[in-house]
Amino acid sequence: MNAKLILKRRDVLDEHRFTEAVIWELTQPLPGSAHRYKYRLAYVVDGVCMVRYDNESGKGDHKHLGADEQAVAFTGIADLLRAFRRDIENWRP
């Protein structure tokens, strides 16, 4: 499967925290997803991933908030990034 990298970014927020976003456009959807994107969005604090959005093959679109995992509705990349930022702003360990 051919893929085109459309975003790869790491933002260091301070010495303890960073965000990372990697998004690929695929030629066909992954199993479990209805769109042609593969993504991984992560918010890491002191080496521990606190918030993660991803769509690993077979699981579909979902997010991890600490130890909790829940499905998300994919409505587009911009919406996905907004939801990710909102979850980071609202994160309470």
Rank of each mutant, 00 (worst) to 15 (best):
M1G: 12
N2V: 12
N2G: 07
N2P: 15
K4Q: 14
R9I: 07
R10Q: 12
R10I: 13
R10V: 15
D11S: 11
D11N: 15
D14V: 10
R17W: 10
F18A: 12
T19P: 03
A21I: 14
A21H: 05
I23V: 15
W24F: 03
E25P: 13
L26G: 09
L26T: 14
L26S: 03
Q28G: 09
Q28K: 15
P29E: 10
L30I: 09
P31R: 13
P31D: 11
G32S: 10
G32Q: 11
G32L: 05
G32T: 01
S33H: 07
R36D: 12
Y37K: 10
Y39D: 07
Y39E: 01
A42K: 10
V44L: 07
V45Y: 12
G47D: 00
G47L: 11
C49E: 11
M50T: 06
V51D: 00
V51W: 00
R52M: 11
Y53G: 01
Y53N: 04
D54H: 01
D54C: 05
S57C: 12
G60F: 05
G60S: 10
D61V: 04
H62L: 07
H62E: 01
K63R: 15
H64K: 02
L65A: 02
G66F: 04
G66P: 09
D68L: 04
E69C: 13
E69V: 12
Q70Y: 05
A71M: 03
A71V: 05
V72Y: 00
V72F: 00
A73M: 04
F74Y: 13
T75Y: 03
G76F: 13
G76D: 02
G76Y: 10
G76M: 03
A78V: 02
D79W: 04
L81V: 10
F84W: 11
D87H: 03
I88Y: 02
